[in-house]
Simulated scan of single mutants.
Amino acid sequence: MLRRWMPPILFLAVGLAAAARRAGEGSPGAAVVLLLLFLPAAALLSPLVFPRSLSAAEALRRSQADGRPIVYWRPGCRYCLRLRTRLGRHAYRMHWVDIWRDPEGAAAVRAATGGDETVPTVVVAGTPHVNPDPRWVRAQLP
Rank of each mutant, 00 (worst) to 15 (best):
D133V: 00
G114W: 05
Y92R: 12
T85I: 10
A91H: 04
Y79W: 12
H95P: 00
T118E: 08
V137G: 04
L87M: 13
H95Y: 04
H90T: 10
R78H: 13
I99G: 07
G114P: 04
A107D: 15
D133H: 01
P128H: 01
G115L: 08
T121P: 02
E117A: 10
D98N: 15
A112F: 04
P103N: 06
G105A: 06
A112C: 06
C77E: 10
N131Y: 00
G114S: 01
H90V: 09
R110M: 14
G126Q: 02
W96Y: 03
V124F: 05
A106G: 10
G114T: 11
D102E: 06
H95D: 07
T85W: 04
P103A: 14
Y79F: 11
L83T: 12
T121C: 15
T127Y: 02
P120Q: 09
T127I: 14
A106I: 08
G105F: 01
R138W: 04
R101M: 15
Y92L: 12
A108K: 03
R93Q: 14
C77L: 09
G115T: 06
Y79E: 15
H90Q: 13
V119R: 02
C77R: 02
P103Y: 06
T127K: 15
R89E: 14
W96C: 01
V119G: 02
C80R: 02
P103C: 12
A112G: 08
I99V: 15
I99S: 09
T85Y: 11
W96M: 05
H129T: 10
R89A: 15
P134G: 07
N131M: 07
A111C: 08
